[in-house]
């Protein structure tokens, strides 16, 4: 009896790593496609951006046949849980709340969050000074959580994409928006539309809301996919591929501390 049990156990132990380590083929990656310059759709509707280049480099590294799917932001985690794709590479920050539902790779970049206001505005950035003011940001983001928890009393408007928040900042419907500094700078402030707007107030990095940087998100049972990406991140950073891609999109290393 005991030999049978140990035989079965032994077979299982041998079998699990062999099959579980295999990456899905194709490996389907979801991105938002509305968060320039990290991920966006070009004029032909193809996904482009820092994260797309980085994802391709990581897929080469782990020998995966990767395909991209474009998914609206607030459905991106439900879609993963519903098996629509296998991984999320969409500036999804690693937070404790999200970790209760999904598993992350190591971080692959980290930038602080900050408010953007019209240059002409005299708005002071503090909870007291902003009472009753209108602030826009994207729904289901760390920014939204921060605003609701720490900035109560501010009229918060949440948008499906950051691009819509930029539009309403331009039209003057909102007094300020909150976004990450690189997306806001590259995707808005440095474009012709962003003329006349600037960052104001401190940079926010508190792990409670802004997490531990952006990571590759996978279902909890697919921890091996997250591990493969963690290895790939370490390798592309070690061999300089990461720095080259970051230089191309931002002119600096966006990895953070």
């Amino acid at each position: 009896m005991r030999t049978t049990v140990s035989l079965i156990l032994g077979t299982l132990l041998l079998a699990i790593p062999a099959s579980a380590q295999e990456l899905p083929n194709p490996l389907r990656i979801a991105t938002e496609g509305a968060y320039a310059p990290f991920n966006y759709l070009d004029d032909e509707g193809k996904v482009q951006g820092f994260e797309i280049d980085l994802a391709r480099a990581m897929c080469d590294e782990i020998g995966a046949n990767c395909e991209f799917a474009v998914q609206d932001w607030d459905g991106i985690i439900p879609g993963l849980l519903a098996q629509k794709y296998d991984a999320i590479i969409a500036s999804l920050y690693i937070t404790d709340e999200r970790r209760e539902r999904i598993t992350f790779s190591d971080k692959y970049y980290q930038v602080p969050a900050r408010f953007v206001v019209p240059k002409a505005s005299t708005l002071e950035i503090s909870r007291e000074a902003m009472q009753g003011k209108v602030v826009g940001t994207q729904r289901a983001t760390s920014f939204e959580r921060f605003m609701r928890d720490e900035m109560a009393g501010i009229d918060l408007r949440v948008y499906a994409t950051m691009e819509e928040a930029y539009l309403d900042l331009q039209s003057g419907r909102v007094d300020a928006i909150m976004a990450d500094v690189v997306a806001a700078s590259e995707g808005f402030l440095k474009t012709p539309e962003g003329e006349g707007f600037e960052f104001r107030g401190p940079e926010y990095t508190g792990a409670k809301w802004f997490g531990y940087g952006a990571g590759v998100g996978v279902r909890k049972e697919d921890a091996h996919i997250a591990d493969a990406f963690s290895d790939a991140i370490a390798k592309v950073r070690a061999d300089g591929t990461y720095q080259k891609i970051s230089e191309k999109w931002f002119g600096f290393d966006v990895y953070g501390e």
């Binding site: 607030d74 985690i77 439900p78 709340e97 999200r98 209760e100 539902r101 729904r139 289901a140 939204e144 959580r145 609701r148 949440v158």
Partner: peptide
Amino acid sequence: ARVIASRNFAF
């Protein structure tokens, strides 16, 4: 519903 769903992952 959208805000509550995404905040609590209770879709």
